[in-house]
Each structure stands twice: as C-alpha cells, then as structure tokens.
Nucleic acid binder design. Sequence first.
DNA 1: GATGAATGAGTTTTCATTCAT
DNA 2: GATGAATGAAAACTCATTCAT
Lengths: 207, 207, 207, 207
Amino acid sequence: MAEKRLSRRERERLRHRKEILEAALELFSEKGFHNVSMLEIAKKGEFATGTLYKFFQNKEDLYKALVLEQSDKFHNALVQAIEASDDEVEKLRNYVRTKGDVFRANVSMIRLYFAETRGASFNIMAGLDPEIRERYGRFLERLASVFASGMEKKRFQEIADPFHLATAIDSLTNAFLFLWLEAPDQHPYPDDPDIILNILFKGLLGR
Amino acid sequence: MAEKRLSRRERERLRHRKEILEAALELFSEKGFHNVSMLEIAKKGEFATGTLYKFFQNKEDLYKALVLEQSDKFHNALVQAIEASDDEVEKLRNYVRTKGDVFRANVSMIRLYFAETRGASFNIMAGLDPEIRERYGRFLERLASVFASGMEKKRFQEIADPFHLATAIDSLTNAFLFLWLEAPDQHPYPDDPDIILNILFKGLLGR
Amino acid sequence: MAEKRLSRRERERLRHRKEILEAALELFSEKGFHNVSMLEIAKKGEFATGTLYKFFQNKEDLYKALVLEQSDKFHNALVQAIEASDDEVEKLRNYVRTKGDVFRANVSMIRLYFAETRGASFNIMAGLDPEIRERYGRFLERLASVFASGMEKKRFQEIADPFHLATAIDSLTNAFLFLWLEAPDQHPYPDDPDIILNILFKGLLGR
Amino acid sequence: MAEKRLSRRERERLRHRKEILEAALELFSEKGFHNVSMLEIAKKGEFATGTLYKFFQNKEDLYKALVLEQSDKFHNALVQAIEASDDEVEKLRNYVRTKGDVFRANVSMIRLYFAETRGASFNIMAGLDPEIRERYGRFLERLASVFASGMEKKRFQEIADPFHLATAIDSLTNAFLFLWLEAPDQHPYPDDPDIILNILFKGLLGR
DNA sequence: GATGAATGAGTTTTCATTCAT
DNA sequence: GATGAATGAAAACTCATTCAT
C-alpha cells in the first residue's frame, strides 16, 4: 500500500520500533512488567536506553503500546473466526479452533494477554487499559449474539443467558489452553475443538 | 488446643504476625506486589519496618506466607464443601455455593488468589509457589473424582474426561465470580448455584 | 527553650538536616543549582543519597528550603537593623553596616541570595519563590517608610519618592558589596557606611 | 562594507548562524541555560540538531557566542551615549536615557545580560566570560572618568570616589529598570532620566 | 552541507534491608 | 524485642554529542 511511500529512514524507524516491541514482548511475557528494566529491553533489542525513549514516552507507554498491538491481533483473529460461517455451531467450533491456533503460535503474546484480561490487571495496569477491557467486553457480546441467534433458530436450547454462555465458552477455552500451556506433556493440545464444545453441547445430566 | 500452652509473649507475637499479614493482604490485593513497599505495610500495621523483618526474612517471604495462608483457608473450605454430602450433584452444588460464599466474604483474599493461580502467576511469582500449584492440582483431581464417581453411578453422562470436567467447573465458577467482582452492579452475585451448574448439566444441543 | 524536650533521636535528626543544608549551601552557592548533583551533596555531607530524600522530597525542595532559611536570616538581621534606633539617619547607617556585616560573615549565603533576588531568579527559580520576593518587597516598603518619616520630620529633602530611595539604597549597598565580593583586594570592604551613604546624602550638584 | 564580497554560500551561512542565535536568545533568556536543550533550539530555529554543531562547538560555545554578541550591542550603545556630548551632566543623562531605551527594546537580551553580569554569573558561567567582565570593568572606568572630569571642572562636588559614583549610577539605573521589568504596571518606565539622576544630583540632606 | 536517529554517561529518585540505640 | 534512620544498589529517564546517509 502506502508503504512504498515511506522513505528508507522511515522504514528503518518502523523496523526499529518493531524490534523494540519484540524484545519487550519476550521479556514482559516472561518476567512481568516490574521485573524487566528498560536497560534489559534495550540490550535485548541491541539498542541504547535512550533509543527506547525516542519511540515511547516511558516504560508504561511502551508496555501499553505492546499490549494494545498484541491484543489487537488476538481479537481480530477471533472476530474473523466467528464471522467465517453462517452456522452457529460452526462459528463456535471456529472460535475454539482459531483461539487454540493463535494461542499455540504466540505463547508470549498470550501470556501478556492473560496477564491483562485476568489476574494481574488488578495490579500492574489497574485501569490503565480501559480500551482493552472494553474491546474484550464487546467481543463477549458478539459471542453472546451467536448463542442468541442459535436459540432463536431453535438450534440451541435456552439453558442459560447468552452472555453467560459466551462467558462460559471463553473461560472454558482459556482453561483448557492453560492446561496445555503449563504442562504440554500432561495435557496435550486439544486438536479436536469438540472436546471442549461437548461440555457445552451435551448435558451432564442425560435427557 | 495447644494455644493455652503459649506464653503471653508468644501469643502477642502471633497476634503481631497476624496484624502484619492483615495489613499486607489489603495492600497487596489492592495494588500488587511491586506497588507496595515494606514501609507502607509497616505503617498500615502500625509497626516499624524493622519489626517486619523480625517476622519474615524479606518481602517475598512475607508475600509467600500470606499467599500460602490465604490459599489454605480457601482450599480447606472447598475441600469441605465437596465432602459434605454423598450425593455428587449436591457436592457440586455445594462447591459452587461455598466458593461463591468464600469469595464474597474475602474479596481481598480472592484478588490475591487469582493473581496467583491465573495471570500474574507467570509474572510476579513465576514458579515461586509450587506448593500452591500442587495443592491446586490435587484439589482438581479430587473434584474430578466426583465426576468420575457420578459417571460410575450413571448419574452423569460420560460427556468428557472427569479431569476436564473438573477444570471446566472450576473455570466456570471463576469466570462468573469474576464478572461479579469486576461489576457487581451489572452482574449481581449468582445466589442460585444452578445458574452455573445448568451450563454443565443441560446440553446446549437438545436431546 | 523547648529544645530540651527533644529526644536524642530528634536532636540527631535536626543536626543531620542542618548538616545536609550546610553541604548544599556551599555547593549551590559555588556552582549553582544545576551543576550540583544530589550525590555530590550527599558525599560532601557524608550521607547516602537516600538520606537526603528522607529530609527533602526532592532536589528542588532541598534548594527551596535552603534559600528560605538563608534569606530568613538575612532579612531578620536587616529588619532589626532599621529598627534599632529612632533616628532616621542612624537607621540607614545601621542598615548599611549590618548588611555589610552579614554579607562578610556569610559569603555563600549571599551568593545564593543574589542569585535569587537578582539575575538567576528569572532562570532557575522563575517564580518558584514568591514568598521570598514578597518578603523582599515588604522589606523595601519598610525601608521606604524610613525615608518618608525623615522627610516628614524635614530631616530629608524630598528629592525622590521614598520607595525609589529605598530601591536606591538597596541597590547601592548591593553594588558596593559586590565589588568587594568579586575583588576584595581592589575594593576593600567599606568599613565606613558613610562612604555609601554620602552618595545619597550629599548632592553631586552643590547647593 | 565587506559584505558584498561574501559568496551566496557565505551569506547563507551567516544568516543561518544568526537565526540560530535568535532562537537561542529567546529560549535562554526565558528559561536559563540549563533548562533549554539543543533540540529545543534546533526546532525553534527550524534546523537539525547536527546543524547547530556545524556552527558552534558545543552548547556552552553557542551560549557564550550569544552572550558576547548581545553584550557587544549593549556596550556599544552605552559607550556612544556617554560620548555624544561634551557636557558631563548631559553625558550622564544620555547614559541613563540610552540604557533605558536599549533595555526596553531588547528585554530578552537584557535578561541574558543581567544573568551574566549579576547573579547567575557565579553559577552558570562561573568565570566563563572574563572578556565580558573586563569590558564591563573598562566601561565603568570610562563612566568614572565622566565624574572625574566633572569634578575637575568643578561641575560636580567631590562627594565620592569617581569609580564609586560610576558603580552607583550603574546600579541605580539597573535597579530602576528592574522594577519596571518585573512589574511594568506598578513601576512605569522612567521616561524622565532625571528621576534617577536627581538621587545623585541632589543630596538627601539639604545644603 | 544538512539531517536526525542513535548513543550512553550522568542524574534523580525509590525502597528493601540493616543495625545502632 | 522494637525502632526508624541510614544505606546504597538499582531503576527510569534526559540530553549533549556523534556520524552514517
């Protein structure tokens, strides 16, 4: 696109920015915000500390940029997944499969993502990322509408509030991917999305 | 029990220790490990900094002690919950209800708990708490055995691996309690455990 | 007075505060605000950097405390000087003599004082010290009233506005003391206040 | 004059140098040496940082060049003023009037000038500008000779050493112009030089 | 000659930890 | 045992200066 228009200098600048973010991603996802120093990031990216500050106003700004960019990628993939088909079951299957794929391909990114949407968010960013929270909320609504439309078409039973079901499938996929993330040997990656989906689809109590 | 045996000195010491941990709990759960200073804890507990070091080797040690004690309470309550009845459905209902009760009664403790078992655990404590992890794993096994025994008795359908179901119910309860924790107004506390349980009990796909 | 009431700890604290300010005074007056580092002050005072921050919030705060305390001393001496006698000429003579005495005894303090009420004030402190400015203004008014009362009593001719005369005597004394400060050999200290006062008292144009 | 001889290149160079100094003057006089960065000057002058270093070896060098050029202008005007007439009283009147005019026309320059000859000089430039000091001294001598010649001609009374009188008139004019500079509303610009001169001319003590 | 990205030494500031009283 | 003043290492951040393009 317009990229051709960028001067070499500008292209280099962008590349450097990207390199800094890559170094930061690896370090932050591994050790957390407070256990990574700017010097560390600089060294890993093979820059001087001062250089980081040419790209980001301060440490928090760098962190925020990173989290925003990464969660962008994640969300875009998931949104596409639930829009790829017209069939509600297929949408959910797609969602589970895509989430797993992105998960496996970007473990660092995921660590960061969870640290933000779950636990550490109280701590590190405490309200620093309302954008992300909001987008996450909007995505859940979208997921809820899949359940709602399935119910309207009588494909799904009305066993719970659609938003609750969205919350449920989200947390279930997270939990299973977590198992795999923490102990890939004991809990092999669930290739078949139905392993997860069945828990929602089939009732524990028969009939 | 043996408490009677403690001298006044020892009783005072224990009380002081408890007071420190209480101050620390509130602060850590609110602001996270790195955003709380020893001075802050000392002031909140009305001690001198030096005194904290009479009770705990260092900041991490204090934090760890706190997390261990709190997760102890939590786990004990949950273990009791699933052992209070012989009926599997009742065990699960008890589990969900108790978890919610403890949750509501100890929001600070819970914030800490999640920060540890979820997100931030990669970060802040990264492997600092294998004890907790292990106990958490053992509890999941115990929960799995509830599903397994339910299946044996043909009360439950064999829709998934029992451990997976344990993981599922754990993550579902967490997710719902999270909703409440973050926005108590929008997501009122689910008094009826069946709101959560139905998602597992009834299948989305009828029949 | 109440000093007896201070515990040894408190007395030590005050002594340390004083020592820090002394080290800072020497350095700031010699090299200026920006050319002195906190580490330098700490070393000169034989403290650790952190200690400085126990007494002062930050570098500016330390500087301001110093300037305030020093200008306090200076002003108090001058106020006393113009109140020691009832005779207007004697008041002025006292003022010039006292200013010179304080000046000679506290060269570092004076450097700081001038840096604040003159030149550098635009720069370094730009409006940081309205308190000092104001007090300086109030002192000039007081000095003006000496001229005014002298005129009323017909001791002084009405050659200029009293406030202007106050400004004049202030700037004249500064100028002469400056000469001495910069080159004590070429411009020996004016022991006789009348050398300065004559310029105001006797007219250049006779009669 | 020789300017015609300069190639276009050289003329451009000189123009650039001037533009840099203008940008620097405004910034330095407003915020002081240490609170202005080279980047700031470069941006204000619409140059790249590197370009500044083509014209000046370093920041101090740029500052010094600025101060020298500005004080040049100032001194030249004052020297002309005291040489414009043969009458001593007229010389002094001219001096006071011209100083005020230059003052009013170049407030930034004046700020810089005072910061150098007064207060901050200890600090920022500490001995960096012996040239300026010396020239200032030589000017005072010249001014002193006006008083001396006035005394010889019996126009002036011998109320003080001529050099002291030069110092006096210098400091008096500074003081009055300062009043105006700091609060132009309260202390309107002294259009009539005699307001200042009267203080020297007429004695406070009559007769 | 001009540019401006990169550098890294230097500064301010924080805070876990120690230890004399 | 308790205290809290002192410590100093470590971190964030700035900016004069250089140099490849």
